[in-house]
């Protein structure tokens, strides 16, 4: 091989390589950041179906939106507003570490896939629609409330989320209420992709290093799918119980303090006056 040829091949490799990695990383990125809420041609999940999005929207708008959805919605953009309304007020979460370049690569990737040029499967194969078993539902409940620990030792859902129909005090109020999460995220598929890589900053920071296993995800899906409809359960009792317990606890604590310091002295003067008044009345 002549020197020139060798240089030619090498430069070809160098020229081709970055492009290949870019495509590669966009595919990865899509899987990690987008796939739990979106499909390309598979119908809407928690977010819209992305097929043909480049035809529907300006490229620059798409990139801007991906980099900071909140800002675009906040800027009063009508398209974005309409979308928020369509998705019941849900705004796409900001993706950690999203840059202009990554967004551009993602837009390109989606466009390529929509046109069917990509040789990769359009999305993960649809879950077989097995009817969920009562066992799965029960396991999901146990995982949710933390009776059974998660395999990777992640925090139980109950710590931050509530869902109607839980016994006693219910769950935390930090995260959103998950009663209708099944419908909100677009059913089984949406839930599955969301749970396999939670995209919100808080969830991802908690579960990136402690991912849920496939078995656990199945159990959660079963649990959320079997949630009774919103109206069927009332939470009034539970909130009442919570306040009651708070009051009771306070009372108990005060009681303990009183016992501990029952020997403390109180004023005497008022008592003297009181005793005198009582005598005066008799």
């Amino acid at each position: 091989m002549s020197m020139t040829k060798r240089i030619g091949v090498l430069s070809l490799v160098f020229l081709w390589f970055p492009a290949a990695t870019r495509a590669q990383s966009a595919a990865d990125d899509y899987k990690k950041s987008c796939a739990m809420c979106h499909t390309i041609g598979g119908g809407p999940l928690a977010g819209p179906d992305l097929a043909g999005m480049s035809d529907r929207r300006e490229r620059s708008w798409l990139i801007r939106f991906i980099v900071d959805p909140q800002a675009v919605v906040g800027s009063g953009d009508t398209t974005a507003k309409a979308m928020v309304d369509e998705y019941k007020g849900m705004i796409m979460p900001a993706l950690p570490g999203m840059t202009h370049e990554r967004a551009a690569a993602l837009v390109d990737y989606v466009r390529e896939r929509s046109s069917g040029k990509s040789d990769q499967p359009a999305s993960s194969p649809k879950r077989e629609m097995n009817p969920v078993t009562a066992e799965d539902v029960e396991r999901g409940r146990e995982l949710f409330v933390g009776v059974q620990p998660l395999e990777a030792h992640g925090a139980a859902c109950l710590a931050c989320h509530d869902t109607k129909g839980l016994e006693s005090m219910g769950g935390g109020r930090l995260g959103p209420n998950l009663t209708s999460v099944y419908e909100r995220l677009g059913g089984r598929q949406g839930l599955e992709s969301w749970l396999s890589a939670p995209p919100t900053p808080l969830m991802s920071s908690l579960y990136r290093t402690r991912p849920l296993s496939a078995r656990e995800i199945t159990a959660f899906i079963a649990f959320f799918e079997a949630r009774p409809p919103r109206e069927a359960v009332s939470t009034g009792m539970r909130h009442g119980a919570f306040s009651m317990l708070g009051l009771l606890g306070t009372g108990l604590l005060l009681g303990v303090f009183h016992l501990l310091w029952r020997g403390r002295r109180r004023g005497v003067r008022a008592k003297l006056v009181q005793a005198y008044r009582l005598r005066g009345v008799q």
Binding site: L260, W261, G263, R264, R265, R266, G267, V268, R269, A270
Partner: peptide
């Protein structure tokens, strides 16, 4: 040690 934050034998303001 137990009473440092709450001295139990203080005269009250009324006293």
């Amino acid at each position: 040690v137990f009473n440092i934050f709450h001295n139990p034998h203080m005269p009250s303001m009324d006293d």
